[in-house]
Design a protein around this nucleic acid. Sequence first.
DNA 1: GTCCTTATTGCAAAAAATTGCAATAAGGAT
DNA 2: ATCCTTATTGCAATTTTTTGCAATAAGGAC
Lengths: 140, 140
Amino acid sequence: MTCEGNFTKKLSERGYRVTPQRREILHILLHADAHLTPAEIFEEAHKKLPNLTEPTVYRTLEFLAEIGLAQEAYSEKSKSAYEISGYAHHHLICRKCAKEVEIPHVKVEGLCQNLEDETGFKLMQNHLSFFGICPDCQEN
Amino acid sequence: MTCEGNFTKKLSERGYRVTPQRREILHILLHADAHLTPAEIFEEAHKKLPNLTEPTVYRTLEFLAEIGLAQEAYSEKSKSAYEISGYAHHHLICRKCAKEVEIPHVKVEGLCQNLEDETGFKLMQNHLSFFGICPDCQEN
DNA sequence: GTCCTTATTGCAAAAAATTGCAATAAGGAT
DNA sequence: ATCCTTATTGCAATTTTTTGCAATAAGGAC
């Protein structure tokens, strides 16, 4: 089974079709160590699938996010970026140098629980982005 | 003094120019009860300033956010939206019906403090968006 | 394997957002 | 009030993202 097999299995189990395009995009997301923009994903996937088009990448990413296999990771200036859905985690991003620090979900869990209790909302929060200035940039 | 006077004053105090475009966009943001998209702001401002162009709206919003007079309020699917900078607050947004509940900053303050202490980052977090399903939509 | 249904893709076109640069006008100096 | 400097704007062109629709191909039935 290829590395994205677990994910394509979830697709077919849920009645969605497994296409080369979806397989390749999942593959790329799985091997990315950070989140990627649609443009980056297109560039990469296009090497393997020469007649893949941008609209397909955009629609596939949106689709994968909708069914929960990928998630949108908001980055600066509302440029969109995506990453594979894994363990819930969050990012602290420096507004100056763009350095990112990962925040484990446990840190945020208490707050989420409180919000759920108080508002009755069921949270689907698997990626928060906090912005700030990192220690290095504070000095300069 | 017009209603946006406080804001235009801050502009000139800090050496930025006060232009009809900036004045009008501030005016619109001030009278909005929610955050607005660049397109909505353009449409509105264009009535008063017929030869205002989109690029100016985009650049002005980005500029106002940069100097802290406005802030970007991330909404769904990374569409950008802006609101005037006031008291820090956050939103809990329903992914189904798009209903929004405001979350006062005090709820989030503790978490922010922890993150600052642990990472050394200085947070500039004046607007977080939490996503979930609201009580009404959970029933249906 | 072949056929059938329809989800998914690619293409073409449109809409939204961004960029570079010359023209304009804000605000200080005279 | 007029001039000067340069931040800011508008225009034109580009890039990015989205949409509609016909063509294709995934997956089930036979």
